Simulated scan of single mutants.
Amino acid sequence: MKTLKKIAIACALLVSIIGISAFICQEPDKKNTATGVAEGKSFAVLELFTSEGCNSCPPAEQLLEKLGKESAGKPIYVLNYHVDYFDHLGWKDAFGSRENTRRQQEYSTWLNSQVYTPQLVVNGTAEFIGSDEKAVRSAIASQLSIKHQGILSVSVHKTGKQIKVDYLSGNTGDQDDLILGLIQKNGSSNVLRGENAGLRFSHIQIVRNLQSVSLKQSSSGSREFYIPLENNMEKWEVIGIIQNRKTGRITAVDTAQVNQ
């Protein structure tokens, strides 16, 4: 008890001297060790599954962009996953990937839902038609009223086309994974064939790469991404999500901008 008391006093003095109100002082614990991040955060993570080959997807992408603009300064995070299962209908989506399709299939299992576009998932716990603005806004409001106990901090360092991501998490369980995503902030395409032939698409928050890390053994670490060669001039962001691999529920999120 004397030792703990001395630790508490030392920490209080350190907070007073440095003046960092978010500093977290606690006994070492590999499952609860993120400094500078407050517990009990509310947020809404919006994951839209879409394709340039889907003629019902443009309204959903427009809604996503609208919500993205409205969310500036708010804990609302929008992600645009282009799937690959429309590629055989005449137009190959340059932003689509099998990886994104697999993530949607995971949600199909977690939420007992069909695989379709445009599908929008909020915080890993509810899914809607991506263009249903009323339902999406209701889900966002509901999630922003919930305090999530997960803790996560991500930071990035870019060298050439390599991006190193450092992460630090806390309040996680044995079934929690860290999902790291490399996000291209903007992109566009002239669709020449398929259901949307003749249209020009502008996209935001495009998921270009995903990595999954188990947090069972360690709460901190680093991973690397590589920017696609043809997109070196684009703006990029990294997002981190703590997600339960059995239920899909998201309990923490953080982002870091990639400097040019």
Rank of each mutant, 00 (worst) to 15 (best):
D176G: 05
F225E: 09
T35K: 08
K235V: 14
K31Y: 12
Q257M: 09
L192A: 13
Y107R: 14
T3L: 02
V121G: 04
K92T: 13
S145F: 02
C11R: 05
G160P: 04
V115Y: 03
K30P: 05
R208G: 00
R137T: 07
L79C: 12
E99L: 13
H148F: 05
S153Q: 12
K30R: 06
A60Q: 11
A139I: 03
G160Y: 01
S108V: 04
S108P: 00
R249W: 15
S188R: 10
I179M: 06
F86E: 10
I183L: 06
R200I: 08
S153C: 10
N232P: 04
L120Q: 10
K30Y: 09
T251H: 04
K31T: 07
L111M: 01
W236F: 12
S51T: 07
A72T: 10
F95H: 00
G96C: 12
V213W: 00
N171G: 03
D87H: 11
S219D: 12
T251K: 10
I227C: 06
K216L: 08
F43K: 02
T172M: 15
Q104K: 01
L215F: 03
L4M: 15
I146S: 12
Q243T: 09
A22L: 14
L64H: 13
K92N: 15
P228G: 13
I183H: 08
E234I: 08
Q143T: 10
T117A: 07
W91S: 04
G173D: 06
Q149Y: 14
K246S: 05
R137C: 06
S42G: 14
L168Q: 15
E52M: 02
T101R: 07
G248A: 15
P75W: 07
S155P: 03
Y116I: 09
K5E: 11
F43Q: 02
G36E: 11
H88K: 12
I250M: 09
Q62A: 15
V15K: 05
I18K: 07
R98G: 12
S138W: 01
T50C: 00
T251Y: 04
I239C: 13
G68H: 08
L14Q: 08
A22G: 13
E195W: 15
N55F: 07
T33H: 05
Q62T: 15
N80H: 01
V121E: 06
T159L: 00
Q184E: 13
V78R: 01
L180W: 07
G160H: 00
H148T: 03
L192T: 14
I163F: 01
P228I: 09
D84F: 08
V165T: 03
N100A: 11
G53S: 02
V156W: 00
L111Y: 05
K74Q: 10
A12G: 11
G181P: 00
R102N: 11
Q114F: 09
